[in-house]
Nucleic acid binder design. Sequence first.
DNA 1: CTTAATCTGTAGTATTCACTACAGAACAAC
DNA 2: GTTGTTCTGTAGTGAATACTACAGATTAAG
Lengths: 209, 209
Amino acid sequence: MSNVASSPSPPPSKGRPRGFDRDEALTRALDVFWRRGYEPASVTELCIAMGINPPSLYAAFGNKAKLFLEAVDFYERTYWSATWAGLEKEPDVYRAIEAFFKAAAGILLSPQAPCGCLVVLAAINVSSDSTEVSDAIKSLRQVSKRLFAQRLKQGIKDGQLPQKTDVKSLAATLSTMLEGMSIQARDGLVHAELARVASHAVRLLPPRF
Amino acid sequence: MSNVASSPSPPPSKGRPRGFDRDEALTRALDVFWRRGYEPASVTELCIAMGINPPSLYAAFGNKAKLFLEAVDFYERTYWSATWAGLEKEPDVYRAIEAFFKAAAGILLSPQAPCGCLVVLAAINVSSDSTEVSDAIKSLRQVSKRLFAQRLKQGIKDGQLPQKTDVKSLAATLSTMLEGMSIQARDGLVHAELARVASHAVRLLPPRF
DNA sequence: CTTAATCTGTAGTATTCACTACAGAACAAC
DNA sequence: GTTGTTCTGTAGTGAATACTACAGATTAAG
């Protein structure tokens, strides 16, 4: 589900042109999914937020699941990709992790929707006929773990972390912190509090040596 | 919602006696809620698991929400209360935290339902007419934070942690780890992996001094 | 213009949801 | 036995769900 056109796309269409901005509608949908979660966000509510009627939604996005997955893709690109890129750019692994978690606290309490991470929370507890969606989102969560692991390996290569560092479990631990922060965000922590929590994450790394 | 009779209760009833064991039915319901979450667990599915019909469920437990809250109460008493008590019993704060998280890994991957914590996950993403339930569960999550804070304060009093320890944010951080572990559990980590993650939690404490 | 193609609004579809009306069954008290 | 009370199974309630049939509207192409 990475085949996202992400139009400025002037589609050289033949029939009646679409009466709404597809991207703007997508961001409206994202807002609803973000605050409510995948299943509690009803198509009716989505349509109202998007300013369209069901047939337009289905014509443009296929169905609710595809709309959601596209919203998730949009979300990741808009909110997270720069932050993940920063993790690789900063040469010192300790500062990289520190900065990443600080930025994460900001995203999770983004004024747009201060409700934690869409990927972590929105597809938890879905009914059995939405397993496709929850599986897709689960695999996105695995990506974070891989990215952490990759950065830690680089830290070892750079001589900043001990050779014997257990990369796999440490990466899983950092993911655990990141995902836990989503629940804290949803439970109403204010930014200063969540930022202080985030500042503890770097202590999970082996002490500087 | 702590008014739980927790019967061996021989009710000195007048009319037709109940045809099923209330506590056993409750544990069956717990299983369903634990695996599926509050809203995806349909009353139909609950009834099948409990071996009863809807009128019996409603007569015995009131409604779905009350059944869930009672199941949560039962869950906490059965799976967590001893572990939280252990946190206070162990005199060394480092060992206490270490043992707590190790035990937590076991509970979150309990063979009964290796799906993370009911309190953390089951009432995430509920529709707007179940806010009562999700608010009740949210307040249960706050209890963990308070218990961690209490234990850390004791550690300061015992001279094991620095006076200047930021108890509030450190307790929030430990909660964050604990809650994140639920998502890891649901994402399929095996026990050895989750236990290794858990073993990192103690590093969040200030280094021994 | 006509024709073909696409989109839009109205008004539905069938299905599932939590929950319950009702009548009969099973008990205690009398 | 009768009466009163509580539970149980059948069979349903109205409401909400995701999704769509269809006809009219709006465009490009010929």
